[in-house]
Amino acid sequence: MSDTIKTFKTSDLSPEFREEIFEEPGAEKITLCFNCTGCSSGCPMAEQEPEFNIRKFLRMANLGMKDELLNSPYLWYCTTCYKCQERCPQGVKNVDTLLKIRTIAVHNGIMLPAHKKVGQLVFNFGHAVPINDDTKEKRKALGLDEVPPTVHSFPDALDEVKKILHIAGFDEIVAEEEEKK
C-alpha cells in the first residue's frame, strides 16, 4: 500500500457513471453507507487480498470515480458470497452493485481474457463447462448416456440459445478483437 495521498479534482469524477450504476434497482443505497467497515472486515477475499476492498469500491462508485474503478484488477476478485450484503446495517446492495459496475466495465470493453473464454464456451456449446472425453467415460461407467440430455444432445436447443445470445448482443461482447467488425 502506498503512503502517498492521491488527490482528485471534482472534474475528474463522473456523475454520469454514478447515475448509470443507479440504474440497478437498490444500487442507490450506496449513498447510505456510513463507513462502518462491516462489509470489508468480514470479506473472505479481503483476507487473502487486502487490495480487494468492497467498502472502498462502493465509496469510489458513489463519488463517480469511473476510470479508477473500471480499470482496477481487483474488481474481478469478488466471489459473490453475499456475506457483506447480508451484514450491511444500511441495506446496501454490495454485491448487486458490484456486479452492475462489472457490467459497465464489460460494456466499456474491459473484460478478462479468461472470462471472455467462458463466454465463448457458452455461446459455442451452451455450457460454461462443456463435456470432455474423461467425463464421457465416467458417464458410461455409471450407466448414464455418454452425453447428457442438455443442449449437448439437442442441436435445435443449442440454436435457440445461440439465437437469444445473438439478440442480446452477447456474441459481440465475447468476440475476439479481430472478429469484431
Binding site: L99, T103, V106, H127, P149, S153, I173
Partner: peptide, 15 residues
Amino acid sequence: GASCCPAPGVFKSFD
C-alpha cells in the same frame, strides 16, 4: 435441451 443456467456471478457481471 436445457443450457447453462447461466453462471450467476459471471453472466450477471457481463450483461
